[in-house]
Design a protein around this nucleic acid. Structure first.
Lengths: 220, 220
DNA sequence: GTCTATAAGCTGATAGAC
DNA sequence: GTCTATCAGCTTATAGAC
């Protein structure tokens, strides 16, 4: 193998690496921009043009990477769902509800603060017929839901908490914590703020923890 | 005045009455259909054509009555807001929280059951920037919110309830009850149902009332 | 008042030069 | 891989006959 050939190969490798990097970088940028705009304006309210503009690319380029708008949307949802499930706190029967519930509320509130897009996009999908979330809801999410309800039942059996309805208890945990993402704008307007700050979330966490633990009869 | 003239006048009156009736009837039908479709598909997802089809009129006819799609949407929102505010339970300082809260939860849950469209359309608007609800939120709704928080404070002063954060307490009352409208689909999927029935709402009311009263230290 | 036809504008997607 | 130009389809809104 002579020098010229080696050089050519090396150059090709470098070029390919660079292209791969560009590709990864563009994919990442597009999906992050898309997530934000879908969360703000909803699926129908979002244009591919707007996403392209946010990334500084022509829209044909965005469609080169993702082929269709719906494909991009599905990509965003599935990415969020993965993160969502990974961060999902697993409450178990052997944990004491005092610590388990306190921790669950903390994690969910942190999620509402740090990744409100996920909660908002999910909420919009549910509101408009669960077009994209029906499948996961009927599958993995339902299993997780049922497991957690069983944990509540076992806590009730052990007299660690009052005999409250497990399903509705779960709905309450979700709706109260996710409200700080989904209805964050409403809350901030009513509290005369531009947006919710760390203090608001701290107070929310403190309030919810006390109310919910006391409500289901767990000693604090 | 001869008989012919009298007859003509009478006929004109009848005709006018009939036209007014038709007009009222059409307006009513259009706004009801629009409410349902906007709630299902969101503003951008709704076409004037779909509304017209639901009423059995050509879409030019719908636009004859409401001029623009946005005008129709505003009409729907303002109509729902009026009903919403009228049904709003006024909690007052002289009422005991036990009865006042119980009744508030009952009314809000009834609203989620009987008029989920209002809650859903409001939720979608908040989710996407409160384009149409910002004004009422900054005005009448904020006043009502502040008045109710004051009522909570006076209850706390009287030791009728624990010293919980009034603002966050209000958010909890809203999010937990409205969840049965906004996330009704999610709840029904997780409970293996097509839709929530009377029993589910009864259980929800019972659950929420117990949890919330106990949570804020009101005797039941 | 009602309805058909159509204008005007936007948006997703593609063709084709570079 | 990238970008300009453009097509095809949909949607709001209006013009104009009845």
């Amino acid at each position: 193998m002579n020098k010229e050939v080696k050089k050519t190969i090396k150059k090709n490798v470098q070029t390919r690496r660079k292209l791969i990097d560009i590709r990864q970088d563009n994919l990442e940028q597009i999906i992050v921009a898309a997530e934000n705009i879908f969360a703000e304006r909803g699926y129908k309210g979002t244009t591919v043009e707007a996403i392209a503009e946010a990334v500084g690319l022509p829209k044909a380029n965005v469609l080169y990477y993702f082929k269709t708008k719906e494909g991009l949307y599905k990509g965003v949802i599935s990415r969020l769902l993965t993160i969502w499930m990974a961060n999902m706190n697993q409450m178990t029967a052997d944990m004491h509800p005092k610590e388990a519930l306190r921790n669950y509320i903390l994690i969910k509130m942190r999620q509402s603060r740090e990744n409100p897009n996920a909660s908002r996009i999910f909420a919009a999908d549910i509101l408009h017929g669960a077009h994209y979330l029906r499948a996961p809801l009927e599958g993995e999410l339902k299993e997780q839901f049922n497991r957690t309800c069983d944990v509540f039942r076992s806590w009730i059996d052990k007299k660690w908490m009052n005999s409250v309805n497990p399903e509705h208890f779960m709905f309450m945990l979700w709706s109260t914590t996710q409200a700080y993402a989904d209805h964050g704008l409403q809350i901030s307007i009513l509290m005369n703020k531009d947006k919710l700050d760390d203090d608001d979330f701290e107070q929310g966490i403190k309030f919810l923890t006390e109310m919910i633990l006391k409500g289901c009869g767990v000693e604090t």
